[in-house]
Every structure is written in C-alpha cells, then in structure tokens.
Amino acid sequence: MNDILQKPVLDVVDIQRYLGIGRRQAYELVNSGAFHCVRIGNRIKVAREVFIEWLNGTNN
C-alpha cells in the first residue's frame, strides 16, 4: 500500500487501491473536480502531492 505513495504521479487505479474503493467510485472522484488531474489520451494522472493535500484537507 505504501508503494503507491512512492510514485510521483498516480493513476486512477492507484487511487482506487489506496482508498479501497471501486473502479467507478475512483473515476467519479477524479472527474468530480475535487483535485487537479491531467488527461493524456485516455489516461488520467494525478500528482501525488495534489492527492495527499486533498486527502488531508489542505488543498485550496
């Protein structure tokens, strides 16, 4: 589980596994606008720092 947060950039599946949620919930989360994500083709990427700040409630 800690291996996930060693990566500088997370995939949706990383967020899914870390939070212990389903695939659909993970995609809904990244598409909700709760935190910044980058789309590269069909892939969605999230910077680890952005995800951690959101998780800790320290994002602005």
Rank of each mutant, 00 (worst) to 15 (best):
M1D: 08
M1F: 10
N2I: 13
D3K: 14
D3M: 10
D3N: 13
D3H: 09
D3F: 11
I4W: 02
I4C: 06
I4L: 13
L5H: 00
Q6C: 09
Q6K: 15
Q6E: 15
Q6L: 15
K7V: 05
K7R: 12
P8N: 09
P8Y: 06
P8M: 09
V9I: 15
V9T: 10
V9Q: 02
V9S: 02
L10G: 00
L10D: 02
L10N: 01
L10M: 03
D11C: 12
D11Y: 11
V12K: 02
V12F: 06
V12P: 01
V12E: 04
V12D: 02
V13W: 10
V13Y: 11
D14V: 07
D14I: 08
D14M: 08
I15E: 03
I15L: 10
Q16C: 09
Y18L: 15
L19T: 00
G20M: 09
G20N: 03
G20K: 04
I21L: 09
I21K: 03
G22S: 13
R23K: 13
R23L: 12
R24V: 15
R24W: 07
R24S: 14
Q25A: 15
Q25P: 00
Q25R: 13
Y27S: 06
Y27D: 08
E28I: 04
E28Q: 11
E28A: 11
L29M: 12
L29S: 04
L29Y: 03
L29F: 04
V30R: 06
V30G: 09
V30I: 13
V30Y: 07
N31T: 04
N31F: 10
N31E: 14
S32I: 09
S32N: 07
S32P: 08
G33M: 07
A34M: 07
A34Y: 01
F35M: 12
H36F: 11
C37D: 01
C37R: 13
C37L: 10
V38Q: 13
R39T: 11
I40V: 15
I40S: 09
I40H: 06
I40L: 14
G41Q: 03
G41D: 02
G41T: 00
N42Y: 10
N42W: 07
N42Q: 13
R43E: 13
R43P: 00
R43Y: 09
R43H: 14
R43D: 11
R43V: 11
I44V: 15
I44R: 05
I44A: 05
K45C: 08
K45A: 13
K45G: 00
V46K: 03
A47M: 12
A47Y: 12
R48S: 07
R48D: 04
E49H: 05
E49Y: 01
E49T: 10
E49C: 03
F51W: 07
F51E: 03
I52P: 00
I52T: 04
I52D: 01
W54C: 04
W54M: 05
W54A: 03
N56E: 15
N56H: 11
G57S: 07
G57K: 05
G57A: 10
T58H: 05
N59K: 14
N59I: 15
N60W: 08
N60M: 08
N60L: 13
